[in-house]
């Protein structure tokens, strides 16, 4: 997982450097073809509205303030859930990676829980929390927890033992050893976890908002379905795609800033 990631990165990162617009050629081409297909009547607008219609729907929702409110609600849920689940996962990953006792106590339990698809808990979560905010936050946090936990644990366990021995020889205290050797060594793996967690974060939120919510992008899409507003449905899906891309890009920027020592992230 992390190997493939580190191999494919330099290639995908060189493109935007050469020309930041290159990566947008394909999405823009798809939209252009889509527009042409709708205008010529090749695709009936009942099935798929033209991009211009979707943009128009988006403009109307923007003017009414509904769009911004729903995006903000979804964004807030996603980030708070991510922060809660991510910090707990990170803390468990650290504890179990650094302490044998902690790993023995909790790892088996966590591995068992991990194998339950967290979306299968939706009925139970609705019974517990109803359909208010805590239900969505709980599901997002649970979904985000495992990729971050597993990758933090993996990162800490695979820090080069020769470097740890070196640190001890040169008189590093436990704190220094963690700060200067173990944590930086685990960081590439932690970032892999964050990227996976961001994907799961959106997935969980969409499902949770679609099934049980009274606001948010998923709710907006479900409302539109009931009123047969297919342009709003498509608009919600496109916004999810953009938000996902935004989350991925920001984690990449963070990665490039903190892993500049890594050969895969160095300027060529």
């Amino acid at each position: 997982m992390s190997l493939i990631d580190s191999i494919s990165l330099p290639r995908s990162m060189r493109l935007p450097r050469v020309d930041g617009l290159v990566q947008w050629i394909v999405p823009l081409a798809i939209i252009a073809i889509w527009q042409v297909a709708c205008v010529t009547g090749f695709v009936p607008t009942r099935v798929l509205p033209a991009p211009s219609d979707v943009a128009l729907a988006g403009w109307k929702l923007l003017l009414s303030g509904e769009l911004a409110r729903n995006i903000w609600v979804s964004f807030w849920r996603a980030s708070i859930g991510f922060l809660i689940g991510g910090s707990i996962g990170f803390a468990f990953g650290l504890a179990n990676g650094l302490s044998q006792l902690s790993a023995k106590l909790t790892d088996t339990t966590l591995q068992m829980v991990r194998n339950v698809p967290h979306l299968a808990l939706i009925p139970l979560v609705i019974l517990w929390f109803g359909i208010d905010e805590s239900a969505k936050l709980f599901l997002v946090a649970l979904g985000v927890f495992f990729p971050i936990y597993l990758n933090t644990l993996h990162g800490i366990r695979t820090v080069d033992p020769q470097l740890i021995e070196m640190g001890r020889i040169y008189g590093m205290t436990d704190g220094e050893l963690f700060r200067r050797v173990i944590f930086p060594g685990a960081l590439p793996s932690i970032f892999v976890g964050i990227r996976f967690a961001l994907g799961i974060m959106w997935l969980t939120l969409i499902v949770a908002e679609t099934i049980a919510a009274s606001s948010g992008l998923g709710y907006m899409a479900m409302q539109a379905r009931e009123f047969m507003l297919i342009d709003v449905v498509v608009l919600s899906i496109l916004i999810y795609a953009l938000l996902g891309k935004l989350a991925d890009s920001s984690s990449r920027v963070l990665e490039r800033l903190t892993l500049s020592w890594h050969p895969a992230f160095q300027k060529r």
Partner: peptide, 29 residues
């Protein structure tokens, strides 16, 4: 402890520290 130093077959440098910072590691306390 700083009177006795070891050098291994592998350089064992910290990849995330610049060369100078790696040398500073050798100062111990």
């Amino acid at each position: 402890p700083a009177d006795i130093r070891v050098m291994f077959q592998e350089p064992r440098l910290l990849p995330w520290a610049r060369v100078l910072a790696n040398v500073e590691v050798g100062l111990g306390r």
